[in-house]
Design a protein around this nucleic acid. Structure first.
Length: 480
DNA sequence: ATGTAC
């Protein structure tokens, strides 16, 4: 797609960080495709498969206004990672590929009352304890095997199902997107195979780019917003990144297959079969949305059970839990029913984070003067960012921002570039404690395999899609 | 991302 010209009119002229492919660029596009990127990132994106994928998304029936790519965009299954598309409820479709295989992959940040100095010599043992007490990789959770009724409740209620078990507090729910509980969940739409893959995976981290990291607040970038979020320099935090594990993966597999089969019945033709979809108001569309919400609830609950394990580990290290408070939990792989410009839309965000501003009713009351918190994990061993959503993001990207640094090298290319042992040494030389049994996993997640998170975050800030609040620095890394 | 192939 390198032969495509950037549109000479519209936002592309007014804003150097926004590039527009007009709908007229291809016969099958219904709306323009807009990409947030600086010149450096745009030069890489404009010839990349992810841009073709974004233009493919712009052909979907009922797609509203425009489709967007964030500066961390890269190729995904059908729909690019870092993509946003809003589908009208009346005539739109829902596409499992537009949510991704890891339904409600997301990030939460726990904030302690401890200072870096209080960590002292306990960092090594605390990191080790986290790696022992949070199952990762292929491991199940031996302490939480859910029977059918218990699993049903988690699928229906998400984190709210955990309050009775003492694994969540009401305050945790307040500071989770959607209260950690999506109302549209339909446990009956989740297949037996998906249930059997998930029943022993609640409270497990998984592998790939999933992690639990001990962080220190390295720099405050917006003092007022940091105060609202309760963040101060030197403070110890824990960043948790995981999703719905095998359960969500199976839901995606099931519905990509089903929609691929029934699409001809609805007269839908696509440029890429990986974008398999069904009308929102069809039985298959409704069933997927019910299963997707159930898998999303499982993911909220998964991060909540891990939160309980982190609090226990801090308790063992410091005698009490260190006051670990949930700052916020936000999804970056999900479709949500939202109102934009008076219209009801199913907003697909895949590798994109909701970033509502101060005036949005879903922004927690305590954060109304700052905006909804957003967490941007950088590559392993580099910085992560706390951002605040803006009201301007509503018009600029259906209230969305980026989700991470974004892959620059494929997993295979990353393994060719560096060995796991080399990556481990680079991290340890920086004083970072690493617990990761998989050497190949370390190589795949090496900083070299990712774009520059600082550059990505600068783009979304310049574009007004989020404001930088604080930068975090990892001191303990736990991976699968 | 993922019992990395029903």
């Amino acid at each position: 797609m390198s032969d495509l010209a950037v549109a000479p009119t519209g936002p592309a002229r007014a804003a150097p960080w926004l590039h527009e492919i007009p709908a007229s660029a291809r016969r099958d596009m219904r709306v323009p495709a807009r990409v947030y990127a600086d010149e450096f990132l745009w030069e890489r994106i404009r010839g990349d498969a992810s841009l073709t994928q974004l233009m493919n998304v712009a052909t979907l029936p009922g797609v509203h206004d425009a489709v967007y790519a964030m500066p961390d965009v890269h190729e995904g299954y059908g729909f690019p990672v870092g993509g946003v598309a809003a589908m009208r409820v009346e005539d739109g479709v829902v596409s499992p590929g537009g949510v991704g295989y890891d339904i409600n992959c997301g990030v939460r940040l726990l904030v302690s009352e401890l200072d870096r100095k209080a960590l002292g010599t306990r960092l090594e043992s605390l990191t080790h304890d986290l790696s022992r007490s949070i199952p990762s990789g292929w491991h199940a959770n031996p302490e939480l095997q859910l029977g059918p009724a218990d699993l049903d409740r988690v699928l229906r209620e998400g984190s709210a199902a955990l309050v009775d078990r003492g694994l969540a507090t009401p305050e945790d729910l307040t500071y989770t997107e959607a209260g950690g509980s999506l109302a549209g969940a339909d446990p009956a739409a989740v297949s037996d195979r998906a249930r059997s893959r998930g029943h022993d995976q609640l409270g497990t981290m998984g592998s790939g780019n999933h992690f639990v990291e001990i962080e220190v607040v390295d720099e405050i970038l917006d003092a007022a917003a940091a105060t609202v979020f309760g963040l101060r320099q030197g403070q110890v935090c824990v960043l948790i990144h995981t999703g719905s594990r095998g359960l969500g993966h199976q839901v995606c597999t099931d519905y990509v297959r089903l929609m691929g089969e029934v699409m001809p019945r609805y007269g839908i033709t696509l440029p890429d079969p990986q974008l398999a979809c069904a009308p929102i108001d069809s039985p298959e569309g409704q069933r997927y949305l019910g299963a997707m919400c159930a898998a999303a609830n499982f993911a909220f609950a998964n991060r909540q059970v891990i939160t309980d394990a982190v609090r226990d580990a801090f308790g063992r290290a410091f005698g009490e839990s260190g006051g670990l408070r949930l700052l916020y939990d936000v999804a970056h792989n999900i479709a949500k029913l939202e109102e934009h410009g008076g219209r009801k839309l199913w907003v697909h965000r895949k590798g994109a984070t909701r970033a509502f501003g101060p005036t949005h009713p879903e922004t927690p009351v305590a954060y109304r003067s700052a905006g909804q918190p957003v967490f941007i994990p950088g590559s392993m061993g580099t910085a992560s960012y706390v951002l605040a959503g803006t009201d301007a993001a509503l018009a600029g990207s259906f209230g969305s921002t980026c989700h991470g640094a974004g892959r620059a090298l494929s997993r295979r290319a990353a393994k060719r570039a560096q060995s796991g042992g080399e990556v481990r040494k680079i991290l340890e030389d920086q004083g970072i404690v690493v617990r990761c049994p998989s050497s190949a996993g370390l190589a795949e997640e090496s900083p070299e395999a990712y774009k520059d998170v600082h550059r990505v975050v600068n783009v979304v800030e310049q574009a007004g899609l989020a404001r930088r609040v604080a930068r975090l620095r990892p001191v303990g890394v736990v991976k699968g």
